[in-house]
Design a protein around this nucleic acid. Structure first.
Lengths: 215, 215
DNA sequence: TCTCTGCCCGCATGTTTATGCGATTGTTTA
DNA sequence: TAAACAATCGCATAAACATGCGGGCAGAGA
């Protein structure tokens, strides 16, 4: 976490955004602020990493970028600038991108639709140790916890369904699950349908991931 | 999630707080608001659950309470009032209480030290689908994700292969992996072949299982 | 007896995954 | 310069998965 600069010092803020219009609009806005210095506006992660500029305090990072995605850029950026605070600035509010970003080390996640004055406030919050999130992002984050707390096994699953889940979580194919439980592939499929419905997943991978990541 | 009331309608807000001074201060403040109706001020979860009042839209819930703790009260309260939005209002900002509350279903978590006007704004945010968190709470939540993502990865995998593994372990389909990494499905498949060979697995399920069970 | 739940089973069809083969380009190293 | 490695991409085909639909039987409870 960056140390608080004393009152009157300025926050160096860089931005990586491939859309030139958005990039220059935000950059121009930041240059008008009294407490923010623009540390540069870049079109890609690669461009940013290869620049010779000094370490920014804060980076506004788009998700959808040419070449390396913003999410994939988080780790290398944090390796090069260990004290940097990264705030994702993006149109995407799907859970996958939110959590991938946070896992990679992003410190904030806000939507581009927010007014520039909100983004300015978010930068200040980020820099002073907070973690700005647009409301619906924060909601998805809290829901992540409440949804993942019912594991290991919801009471809604029958005993047989639990057997099937255990077999799937061991990495077995449908055929191997059937062999293990002594039932037909069709029966395995029948149970799997019910499991997916009850656990709100849509694939074997999602199921395994959900179960194992909640332990 | 509570349905948005049309403009002009009022939000029913209840509070459970054992400190009489704080309770009456917040209750008095809420009664002064134009868009909020006080649905009652209670000293404990048990008192709230046994009252005959109508379902509040929003509940401000203290953590440290006589009898049942606020955290332990979340689930029974949500069972009795399925649509209720619960915001923890507390002095505690330790990770244990934060995550226990979120796992139990709390929709927000703010510190009592926040000004009453902030709390008012948080109620509005909560009611409109957001998840208000005091800045340092939000920071702890984001840090939870970045700290739990450090998965050991064999050195035989290239950087790109590791990206693919991360994506697969998140439960993504080939197509979603390709979208995330900005490559074609064919390239994803190529990397997956190499990964399976290096890690001696034969399916996506085996890979996910192997990786997540080795954490 | 009827209803509900759980377990077993099947067919058909579309989608996703896994594997056979191939190619190109760029970078690094001997 | 050639070889090795990494990343990107493609086609074809078979296997596995997911989902639409259907059926049956057994046990428990009203």
């Amino acid at each position: 976490m960056a140390k608080l600069k004393s009152r009157g010092q300025l926050i160096n803020v860089a931005i990586i955004e491939d859309d030139r219009g958005i990039r220059s609009a935000i950059d121009a806005f930041l240059r008008l602020q009294n407490d923010i210095i623009s540390a540069g506006a870049f079109g890609s992660v690669e461009e940013f990493l290869s620049s010779n500029g000094s370490a920014p305090d804060v980076l506004l990072l788009d998700v959808q970028l040419p070449g390396m995605s913003g999410i994939d850029g988080i780790r290398p950026i944090k390796e090069k600038f260990p004290g940097i605070q990264i705030m994702m600035l993006t149109v995407y509010h799907d859970a996958d991108r939110i959590f991938s970003s946070l896992r990679a080390g992003a410190n904030g996640y806000v939507l581009k639709s927010a007014p520039l004055t909100d983004i300015k406030q978010d930068i200040l919050t980020l820099f002073s140790g907070g973690a700005p999130m647009s409301p619906q992002i924060a909601r998805k984050v809290t829901e992540y916890f409440s949804q993942s707390s019912g594991m290991p096994m919801p009471e809604s699953l029958t005993a047989r369904e639990k057997d099937v889940v255990h077999a799937l979580v061991d990495g077995l194919s449908y055929k191997m699950v059937s062999d293990r439980l002594g039932i037909s592939m069709e029966t395995t499929r029948f149970h799997i349908r019910n499991i997916y419905e009850k656990l709100h997943v849509h694939s074997k991978a999602e199921l395994i991931t959900k179960v194992l990541k909640s332990r």
